[in-house]
Design a binder for these strands. Structure first.
Length: 455
RNA sequence: GGAAGGGUGGCCGAAUGGUAAGGCGCUCGUUUGCUAAACGGGUUGGGUGAAACAACCCAUGCAGGUUCAAUUCCUGUCCCUUCCGCCA
């Protein structure tokens, strides 16, 4: 969610920024509702003030009234003469009248407040709803273009492109042949887009997970988090996944649980509704989780092999940073992901996503694609994004500046580090030998009990 | 799954319908050979407003309701604790 002040102060600029994403946002509606909202608040607060005052007065009168009643009772018991009794009765009547009048008046104020509150509720609901449709502002360094066709591809880097003196096979042939991927039994258990990793295949994936986690912990200074894999729907809202991606989320039919589509959802909300001390920043988390996605938007796409499943595994990096530090942190996280690619010996390329392709909540995104020699594709293994304060505002994560100023929103960044199925594809396809065996990269062997070749 | 109790500031904790005590911690000041102590002040978040300071409004887990007025009464809901049952 954007800062409403930005829209108030620079509506035309926000519209222009949104247009760069090849989309539109209801800026004018927001301005109108925001203005009306402030009018109502002004009036309703004045009315509340009046009601508070008047209620206080009634309270005081009620006290006097009780005292008068007590006096009257004693008088009736014969302790006062008739004249005094009458005077008391008059006083009491007057007081009662005052109270009744004030109650009626104040009641009318209450009715008016209720009316205005109702309108305020409507205006604010509409305002919030519209605000949710305004995407984050993209950074100036993001290449401008309507869609992914404008993405900027950098020259390949990393290890040289693997070359073979035989025809390299795709993982969907190599895997079953080595008996490390079993597509048929995966489908038997769970249907299409499911597979089984078996034997050295299972161990290889476990090795990669361990390796990546340890690398981020030991070399990049992250703290490991094992979050719940099923969370409440409010957590998805906080991460900006709802309502937009409702159809893509697996959820429990009876209880309010949803299964993570990425660890980012849990990590964004880790400090939900908290006020952090500035000294705590940056917070750097790394998390290994399964990820579940219905893949409704990609029905019929990438159905072959293990590239795109309903369930996959991923190591995810996440940072909460000081707003002034997020640009540097973004570059740093990109390097953290690249370090893994280098360690695993990948041939890869960096992609600067164009304004039309950068995710709704993000201000800038890099993709890393690794070359898979068998299927002959560049596979997206990581997406590295700076959400600036967009997600923090939505999840209500704030920090208190050390100088004691007003609370501010930190910036949040996320990066895959990396996505397992595509890493597995690249490892299997790029390291294959003529006999169909697969060489295990050096760095993974300690996690494989020393095994150097899967055959 | 059943039963009971509970959720109030950074922490503890009072307030049974009258407009959120008190203490601890933290912080500033005064006093003071130093420290300590004492005394005094300050000490949440959001909003409206605004040059700034005020001022005002909202917030007692959350959402509604009753009332002139709700921490207090009512309804729903979330969470925590204890006991019973079941269970890897």
């Amino acid at each position: 969610m954007l800062d409403i002040n930005l829209i108030r102060e620079k509506p035309e600029w926000v519209k222009a920024q949104t247009a760069k994403r090849n989309t539109t946002a209801p800026v004018d509606e927001i301005l109108a509702d925001d203005g009306r909202r402030r009018e109502i608040i002004l009036e309703v607060e004045e009315l509340r003030r009046q009601r508070n005052e008047s209620s206080k007065q009634i309270g005081a009168w009620m006290g006097s009234l009780k005292k008068l009643e007590a006096d009257l009772k004693r008088a009736e018991a014969g302790q006062y003469v008739g004249q005094e009794l009458a005077a008391l009765q008059t006083q009491l009547n007057a007081m009662q009248f005052n109270v009744d009048e004030a109650k009626a008046d104040t009641g009318r104020i209450g009715d008016r407040i209720a009316e205005l509150d109702e309108e305020l509720r409507q205006v604010e609901a509409r305002l919030r709803d519209n605000m949710l449709w305004v995407p984050n502002i993209v950074q100036d360094s993001v290449p401008v273009g309507p869609d992914e066709s404008a993405n900027v591809f950098h020259p390949p880097q990393g290890a040289p492109k693997p070359v073979f003196d035989f025809e390299p096979k795709a993982h969907w042939d190599l895997g079953p042949a080595l008996d490390i991927i079993d597509f048929e039994r995966g489908v038997k258990l769970s249907g299409s887009r499911f597979y089984i990793l078996k034997g050295m295949g299972a161990r290889l994936q476990r090795a990669v997970i361990q390796f990546m986690l340890n690398y981020h912990l030991e070399h990049h200074g992250y703290t490991e988090i094992q979050p719940p894999y099923m969370v409440r729907s409010a957590i998805f809202e906080g991460a900006g996944q709802l309502p937009k991606f409702f159809d893509n989320i697996y959820r429990d039919a009876e209880e309010d649980f949803m299964w993570l589509g990425t660890a980012e959802i849990a990590l964004t909300n880790l400090h939900r509704d908290e006020i952090l001390a500035e000294e705590m920043l940056p917070l750097k988390y790394v998390s290994y989780t399964p990820c579940w996605r219905r893949e409704k938007m990609s029905a019929g796409k990438d159905v072959r092999g293990i590239k795109r499943g309903h369930e996959f595994h991923k190591v995810e990096m996440y940072q909460f940073t000081h707003p002034d530090k997020s640009l540097a942190a973004h570059e740093e996280m990109k390097q953290h992901a690249l370090d893994i690619c280098d360690a695993l010996g990948f041939h890869y390329r960096l992609v600067d996503l164009a304004t039309g392709d950068v995710g709704f909540a993000m201000s800038k995104t890099y993709d890393i694609e690794v070359w898979a020699a068998g299927c002959g594709e560049w596979l997206e293994v990581s997406s590295i994004s700076n959400a600036t304060d967009f997600q923090a505002r939505r999840a209500n994560v704030r920090y208190k500046p050390a100088d004691g100023g007003k609370t501010r929103f930190p910036h949040t960044l996320n990066a895959s580090g990396l996505a397992l199925p595509r890493v597995m594809i690249a490892l299997i396809e790029n390291n294959q030998q003529a006999d169909g065996s697969v060489v295990v990269p050096e760095v993974l062997r300690p996690y494989m009990g020393g095994v150097d070749v899967i055959r």
